[in-house]
């Protein structure tokens, strides 16, 4: 009897906990959606009320004013190239560092991870100089390489921690079978650490998708610019049209959510089965 009471208390607590965070997480989404159907006047005067009349003009403005389609394609190219590039170099490094013994490996590792702390705004002057010297100013490549680089610390950190947790025996067996160094990387370690890869890939993609300051600093024409700059068109020197901006944000969120739901979720869900085999 007592045990049952205990069990149902836990159950209730569990759901209270889950639903509380659910509500908190859902709030911004509702706020965005509701506001995006308001007029600017309604929003300015009564930010928290429901719209008097639900109107879709903001969405029309968003697509029209911000030239969203070009920027959208640029964002997709830039964010996905940066993610692939970032995963490739960080996974190679994480593999070498987590699975091999050599001098300096801990120092290299610590230095790479310390990059997490760097306040990126401090780097505006050197980054602009670097990109100009590489001849990449106002190219998509400038953003790809910058985004891939800025996310090195986080991705390396995550992927390394996943790779470290793979049992040594698996690899030893492979070495016995005559697997070479790169084969161990591609055949054993990469597949086993895909939870880490997709997690850091998802985070890098979303970061790159949302990045604003460097997108503005390192480019000058809308041919190579990203969607976030389109959103900022609604905010000018003296005035911000937030409902239209929110409509643009709603539209631009969709790819990030898709990446999360279809890419990350699918792979993570498939893990349990994979892990049993391992």
């Amino acid at each position: 009897m007592n045990r049952n009471l205990w069990k149902s208390t836990i159950r209730v607590l569990k759901w209270v906990f889950l639903l509380f965070f659910f509500a908190v997480a859902l709030l911004p989404l509702l706020w965005l959606l509701v506001t995006s159907f308001k007029t600017e006047a309604e929003f300015t005067k009564f930010p928290l009320q429901l719209p008097h009349l639900w109107q879709i003009q903001n969405y029309i403005d968003a697509v029209h004013i911000a030239k969203m389609h070009i920027l959208f394609i640029n964002s997709i190219i830039i964010a996905s190239s940066a993610t692939i590039f970032n995963l490739l170099i960080t996974s190679m490094a994480a593999f070498a560092i987590s699975r091999e013994e050599f001098r300096l490996k801990n120092s290299i590792s610590n230095i790479l991870v310390a990059g997490v702390l760097v306040p990126i705004v401090a780097f505006m002057v050197p980054y602009l100089a670097l990109i100009k010297n590489l001849g990449l100013y106002n190219t998509r490549m400038a953003l790809v390489i910058t985004y891939a680089a800025i996310n090195i610390p986080i991705s390396f950190f995550l992927i390394r921690s996943f790779m470290t947790s793979i049992p040594k025996e698996l690899e030893e067996a492979a070495i016995m079978d005559g697997c070479s160094f790169p084969q161990r990387y591609t055949k054993i370690i990469l597949p086993l650490s895909r939870a880490g890869l997709v997690t850091s890939g998802t985070l890098t993609f979303i970061w790159a998708w949302n990045e604003f300051i460097y997108a503005l600093l390192l480019t000058s024409s809308s041919r190579v610019r990203t969607i976030q700059l389109g959103i900022s068109f609604f905010s000018t020197q003296f005035r911000s049209n937030y409902p239209a901006m929110y409509a643009a944000i709603v539209l631009t969120m969709i790819p990030s959510i898709l990446v999360y739901v279809f890419f990350h979720d699918k792979i993570i869900s498939g893990l349990t089965a994979g892990a049993v085999k391992g």
């Binding site: 692939i84 590039f85 490739l88 990449l136 106002n138 190219t139 490549m141 790809v144 024409s221 041919r223």
Partner: peptide
């Protein structure tokens, strides 16, 4: 994947902004 990436990265990406 590496070759494709290299192409994506070096081809249109660099060429695009330099026309000015």
């Amino acid at each position: 994947a590496i070759v494709v990436l290299a192409l994506i990265v070096t081809g249109p990406l660099v060429a695009n902004g330099q026309k000015e």
